[in-house]
Design a protein around this nucleic acid. Structure first.
Lengths: 112, 112
DNA sequence: CTGTATCCATGATGATACTG
DNA sequence: CAGTATCATCATGGATACAG
């Protein structure tokens, strides 16, 4: 039984909060892509396997609403749009890196 | 731009692996409940707000298949069944704790 | 390029009742 | 207590076409 910093009820609420913002099939994958350097719509779509434009569009809006990314329109011809993680988004870095690390470890495990 | 331990493609694959095992609406909440000490079916159902017996039953089977929990039948009267995290499940502790910590921080932020 | 609109299929979930 | 069965509903996502 691990010692926790929070009660079971608190832990549950906080986990729910985290999942509310980052949960679902795509958000963490999109953040991973942006985290890794993708900025343009097509670039992100290329990085996230299987995502369609419709879904990516909706998810980017959600992330923007939650202040995790910014959408900047550059007045070039044709217009260029860049998505970037906000400063606040960086608070997710530790968590995201832990998830990636676990996935790497897990992949090793199931291969053996 | 943070320095990463993995290439963008690797990071994406590993994140996908992690989400494959722990993703979806309920798995991390169930693991949080078990992590916090819940063992019995009803206990877990009581800890995870809104989950139905049908869904919990299915999710517990998935988690068992992925070797994250064990299901033990005790031959009492009436029969007692306990779910517990495996040793392998403990490798998720850091990640889960980071998610809970982030939720706690985020809740503070949005309150202000 | 960066999306939006529409239509449709599917899987996930909810409600309720029921079993060993 | 610990689930399963059945039916209905609903959100998610896929395919395709189209727009600024």
């Amino acid at each position: 039984m691990p010692q926790e910093d929070y009660s079971a009820e608190q832990a549950m609420r906080y986990m729910q909060d985290t999942l509310y913002v980052t949960g679902g099939k795509w958000k963490l994958l999109i953040l991973t892509a942006i985290h890794a350097g993708s900025k343009r719509f097509k670039e992100i779509q290329g990085s996230v396997p299987g995502i369609t434009a419709k879904v990516l569009s909706k998810e980017l809006k959600d992330l923007e609403l939650n202040k995790l990314i910014t959408r900047t329109v550059y007045d070039t011809t044709p217009v260029t749009i860049e998505y970037e993680g906000t400063e606040y988004c960086q608070s997710l870095n530790t968590m995201i890196n832990e998830m990636i690390k676990w996935g790497a470890m897990h992949r090793k495990q199931i291969r053996d």
